[in-house]
């Protein structure tokens, strides 16, 4: 057991992130809805806290606003990207809940999501996430781009794997 913890510690120690902000598109497969999202990534040790807000506009079958906070835990790194597991808790304002056939639909909801994501480890970092909403039992796809704030001194794009990146200010 001791060696297992050592292995996990060694594995996680390779992740060291910078603060990022970004946004992208959010797609809910079950409600056939498309939205936009904004997020920040705040690293704390090897994990990251991710405040997020997502809006599914009025033209969707389900129009709603999510505002919450997530947790990302990296678990697999390859080349200049890494996979992470995520958990997310948010307030959900379901704006057109009156149009839903769901019996207990309501405006104010608390949503919990778990999922997986992949993000590159450079200065402009595309990401993609698969998330499962535990409350509504819906799958979400998120794609977007994060800007590594530690790269804003003009150094431009990183290259190579995260471990070899020399970002200014790091």
């Amino acid at each position: 057991m001791k060696y297992l913890f050592i292995c996990i510690g060694v594995l996680l120690a390779q992740y060291s992130y910078s603060q990022s902000i970004g946004g992208g598109l959010a797609g809910n497969i079950q409600t056939e809805s498309l939205g936009i999202e904004l997020r920040a990534v705040v690293p704390i040790s090897f994990i990251s806290i991710t405040p997020q807000i997502a809006y599914y506009p009025f033209f969707n079958k389900v129009s709603e606003v999510y505002a919450g906070i997530g947790l990302q835990v990296p678990f697999l790194s390859f080349r200049s990207s890494h996979l992470y597991a995520l958990g997310h808790v948010s307030y959900d304002a379901w704006l057109n809940y009156t149009e839903s056939p769901m019996k207990d639909a309501k405006l104010h909801n608390i949503a919990g999501e778990v999922g997986l994501g992949i993000v590159s480890d450079r200065c402009l970092n595309p990401f993609a996430e698969y998330r499962y909403n535990l409350i509504f039992r819906e799958a979400n796809i998120r794609i977007g781009i994060l800007i590594d704030l530690s790269c804003n001194s003009g150094a431009g794009y990183h290259s190579g794997s995260r471990s070899s990146v020399k970002c200014p200010g790091k």
């Binding site: 079950q30 389900v62 639909a105 499962y132 039992r137």
Partner: peptide
Amino acid sequence: SFQNCSKDRIETE
């Protein structure tokens, strides 16, 4: 998780 998805919010059960 994908197999357990639901369309309850847009379709009548």
